[in-house]
Design a protein around this nucleic acid. Structure first.
Lengths: 237, 237
DNA sequence: AAGTGGTCTAGACCACACC
DNA sequence: GTGTGGTCTAGACCACTTA
């Protein structure tokens, strides 16, 4: 762990434990240089991290303060959607039923999202994921074979993401996501067990590896009463 | 504009214009020091910005590369939801109908979200926003009087956010947001003009000012066929 | 072994807020 | 004016990739 990570961790802990309460003024950078025996650039970089996390804000000429809402949204910004459902919920709660598993050429929409040509093959996977034995989400996933190889039914019954990370060494860097509400389709009613007029929450997403290559394009349809999306948005001035 | 902003802008432009195409290797930092006549720290800071934007990635020992998807999601991440609907859509397209405008004490949920006590008064505002004369979203907004003052019906018919920014000098720093699908309520059917079984997309959000003080807590209900949410998510290793 | 990006320093100057 | 944070430098050392 680097020096600025250690310092930011120390200050973060002091904020969370109440030593630096919300709205309070933090020590100035020169003082902290002496406290942590380092240069001012290092202190500034530690504060950069805390500012990105929405814990502190800085005002030129005035000082560095703890945000009023520093303790408000401390819930799991650590668990991320693109890590896969299995990791989010814990693998003992998730099971998967494979409805379709084929290889073929991509249609125009899939080509565009995965940044591939029409003759580059893709996996097409439809899975029903169950949370504690109850239908949770119906996923249709496309993965390009130029990145993802060696999939089989055994993997599909567990976590694809574990396989991508551990066997293929793929690292995710982010995702593009679009969220909609929709009326239930016949598939939704059959597999998600929703009523005739139950709304469905649809998530369309493209997940990217660290070099920006698309790893998956998927559409996930959730029962309206079992899923909500949380976003924490923060930006500097 | 600072030096590192100028440099990052120059490189960003070269990526967008195809001078540095996707997956290509960028010049190394020492070379760029000479190109831009600056120190290495300044080059690194310029790259930090581009990496946060998901345009480049860096590999120790290898170099800095343009992401494969650098040109894929180039759509406006500049326009943000917390800037207000009026700014997002253009004020000539948005009109607002004020359904309720009162002052009162907050209930438990509002107290928690706005980080205020039960005796601190709040505005309660219900507005129907129309996009090109058609019902678009039904908003129920709470704003604490310890931050927001001087609201009146005239302001409510236009952009509250313009007023907050220009008259009160408030600066937004981010938001917490929760997205759901739901069945339509009687209010939705009445004001949004949705059918008996049309799904509704509900957004619950808290918007914060730059010091972390909550500015608003709101619930917005959208017709399912007129609204989708887009999220771009990117993180460093 | 050579080349790359990441960290860290000690010090300088600037922009801004507050007294 | 004093003190604060923001930028920028020139150079050092380290971790890592590639050959």
């Amino acid at each position: 762990m680097t020096k600025y990570e250690e310092i930011s961790k120390d200050i973060r802990d002091k904020i969370h434990s109440g030593i630096y309460p919300p709205e309070s003024l933090l020590p100035d950078q020169l003082t902290l240089c002496k406290t942590y025996d380092c240069s001012r650039m290092t202190i500034k970089k530690a504060f950069d991290i805390l500012a990105m996390e929405g814990l502190v804000y800085r005002q030129r000429g005035a000082g560095t303060f703890v945000m009023k809402n520093a303790l408000a949204n401390k819930q799991d910004a650590s668990l991320r959607d693109y890590e896969g459902l299995t990791k989010m919920m814990g693998k003992e709660h998730i099971s998967s039923q494979v409805i379709e598993f084929t290889i073929g050429f991509p249609n125009a929409k899939v080509q565009e999202q995965l940044l591939i040509k029409k003759d580059e093959p893709v996996y097409s996977i439809v899975r029903l994921r169950l949370l504690d034995e109850k239908p949770y989400v119906l996923e249709h996933t496309f993965m390009p074979l130029n990145v993802v190889t060696g999939l089989n039914e055994t993997i599909l019954h567990g976590s694809i993401y574990d396989y991508l990370k551990q066997e293929l060494g793929l690292v995710m860097s982010g995702a593009f996501r679009k969220i909609n509400a929709d009326k239930p389709s016949d598939y939704d009613k059959l597999y998600l067990n929703c009523g005739e007029h139950d709304p469905v929450l649809e998530v369309e997403q493209v997940v990217y590896s660290k070099d920006g290559r698309p790893i998956e394009y998927s559409r996930s349809r959730h029962r309206y009463d079992t899923r909500s999306f949380i976003m924490l948005d923060h930006h500097e001035p």
